[in-house]
Design a protein around this nucleic acid. Structure first.
Lengths: 134, 134
DNA sequence: CTTGACCCTGTAGTTGCTACAGCCCCCATA
DNA sequence: TATGGGGGCTGTAGCAACTACAGGGTCAAG
């Protein structure tokens, strides 16, 4: 059961260039090649790529993915390390949400302050540029 | 009242390199120079930089900032264009928050499924890599 | 035998900065 | 006058995580 890079891409909704990029940075191993130098993947590589993509979809950075892959390779270790990375990432996500919500409130206030009219009177512009010419 | 680039940076909490970068990409005009070729800023530039930084803090992209600056230069135009950009950005922020909240839910479910034990049995690993060696 | 879809390598672009390297300049102090 | 520290200058390279070419080779169908 061999897969071309295009089939790997379709199976995981990944662009070909991205797969080659993962190979280049060492997230995916260098695969076997056909006689015409095409990449030749097996199910293990497909699994690994699925893992990477799913992790990326959940917002893990490539460095975190690398760590997860390293930890998940060692089946007999306990999974505290994996848990730690995942929970740390959850905290980051929470922080990001909170930051965006704060930003949203501020942005909304700026927008709501504007009643229309000319740019001269626009409160948005005023709110953005605190220092007038003077 | 002339300012050096360092004073501009302090006044707006902006690194010197960032100010030069804004100049390079045309967000800030090329300033006057002193006899020893130092950048020589006035209050108008300080205002413009403040505007840029405040907009960036509110999450506008540099392209959006560029558009806002263009619109706000024309004081007699009505401010509908500015309103449009700001509201469009608000929508983007809302979308980002919703995306992150969905991601958070999924991540939490993955984490909660894990009871500890070895990596072999770890549900997080299982949830991340749907395709086993088959 | 040609057409079109696929694959190859390598490089440059994206966004918004940040970090040098290697230089110049200015002011104060010894 | 030397010299030391803190600015400033240009230009280039790096970060994340891809994406988009350019300029080729390969393969299956008609």
């Amino acid at each position: 059961m061999a897969l071309t890079i295009g089939e790997m891409g379709k199976a995981t909704s990944t662009k070909i260039e991205t797969i080659r990029y993962y190979e280049k940075i060492g997230l995916l191993p260098k695969p076997a090649r056909t006689s015409s130098n095409y990449r030749d993947y097996g199910p293990a590589e497909l699994g690994r790529l699925s893992f990477i993509r799913r992790s990326r979809d959940l917002g893990f950075s490539l460095d975190q993915v690398r760590a997860l892959l390293g930890l998940s390779d060692d089946k007999s270790c306990d999974c505290a390390g994996i848990d730690r990375i995942a929970n740390q990432h959850l905290l980051e996500v929470d922080r990001k949400i909170a930051d965006l919500q704060a930003l949203r409130r501020e942005l909304k206030a700026v927008i709501d302050s504007c009643d229309g009219g000319t740019v001269e009177e626009c409160r948005i512009v005023e709110a953005l540029g605190p220092v007038a010419s003077g």
